[in-house]
């Protein structure tokens, strides 16, 4: 009787497991198919888009990528994106790492106030203040036009990078100072006994220890800078200064009037390929890092 029960349980266990596999694989398929389809569409000829969308491409039409890169200027937009992302990441690290170290470790006048200000910054989402930022830069430009003769703040990749770095400061500082607080004080004491100054202790002792968290910070912010489009669209209005996602939006709009599907999907692949490659290389770090207290816009 007991064995009978157990074997029946074994059967239902197996059924349940099979059911779980089916459900999970179904979800994986739902997630993968749109992405794979975009890759497939990027090598189709424009005429193929009138047929069944599920049909496999007749050949590998790489001309789409050349068109997207040159005709739609996605090549130069990619350069813009690389520049903005790199500058923003550099600025962020230069400001956020020392700031979070000092805020978490040193007692000085105004420490509590500064900490509170950064915490308050966590609640301000950048989407709410895009237009005020635009107005601020626009007013600045008006003032500068009198002095320099031409506007410099809008349509400036460096200014965009500064805005990007500033918008991720609160969360980065929150994350990093949480980490620095968890480090034992003995390291710094030992370093100061050996005669290292505060700056040297930070650069040579603390930063190397914080490397895993720094890598996580870089990964998350790389993704958010690379994929961002609202601020970029608002602050860079000249056609030469677009970043990749905004360039893709142009392609989407152009596709509605003139039929250039292939070129659009090639541009789409150009936008997502770098993030996909980096994700596949470091996926473990990313999903682990997220649980350090990840918060996404």
């Amino acid at each position: 009787m007991i064995t009978d029960n157990r074997s029946r349980r074994g059967v239902s266990d197996k059924l349940y497991k099979g059911f779980i596999y089916v459900v999970l694989i179904a979800l994986a398929v739902i997630i993968l198919i749109p992405v794979l389809w975009a890759f497939m569409a990027s090598v189709k000829q424009d005429s193929e888009f009138y047929g069944n969308p599920w049909a496999l491409p007749l050949g590998i039409h790489l001309q789409n990528f050349a068109d997207a890169w040159l005709k739609a200027k996605m090549g130069s937009f990619m350069l813009n994106s690389v520049l903005v992302t790199a500058i923003a990441l550099g600025l962020l690290l230069i400001v956020a790492l020392p700031a979070s170290y000092v805020l978490s470790r040193f007692k000085f006048r105004g420490n509590a106030f500064l900490n509170m200000m950064f915490m308050a910054g966590l609640f301000i989402n950048v989407n709410y203040i895009v237009v005020p930022i635009f107005l601020m830069l626009n007013n600045g430009d008006k003032a500068l036009r009198g002095i320099l003769g031409h506007p410099v703040l809008l349509n400036n990749l460096f200014v965009l990078a500064v805005v990007y770095a500033a918008m991720s400061l609160p969360f980065t500082i929150y994350l990093m100072s949480g980490y620095f607080k968890s480090l034992p004080k003995e390291f710094e004491e030992a370093a100061s006994v050996d005669g290292a100054g505060n700056f040297r202790t930070m650069v040579q002792i603390i930063m190397p220890m914080a490397k895993p968290s720094i890598v996580t910070v870089i990964l998350f912010n790389f993704l958010s800078y690379w994929n961002e489009y609202i601020i970029s669209m608002t602050l860079l209005t000249k056609p030469t200064f677009k970043t990749l996602p905004v360039g893709l939006m142009n392609l989407m709009a152009a596709q509605k009037s003139a039929v250039q599907y292939g070129q659009m999907y090639a541009g789409l692949v150009l936008v997502m390929l770098p993030t996909l490659i980096i994700y596949i290389l470091v996926q473990k770090k990313l999903t682990q890092g997220m649980t350090m207290g990840g918060l996404k816009g």
């Binding site: 997630i31 993968l32 992405v35 975009a38 993704l223 690379w226 994929n227 961002e228 489009y229 990749l244 996602p245 905004v246 893709l248 939006m249 989407m252 789409l268 936008v271 997502m272 993030t275 996909l276 994700y279 990313l286 996404k296």
Partner: peptide, 9 residues
């Protein structure tokens, strides 16, 4: 994967 893609994509 969807989380690492741009909303535009």
């Amino acid at each position: 994967i969807p989380n690492i893609l741009s909303v535009v994509v």
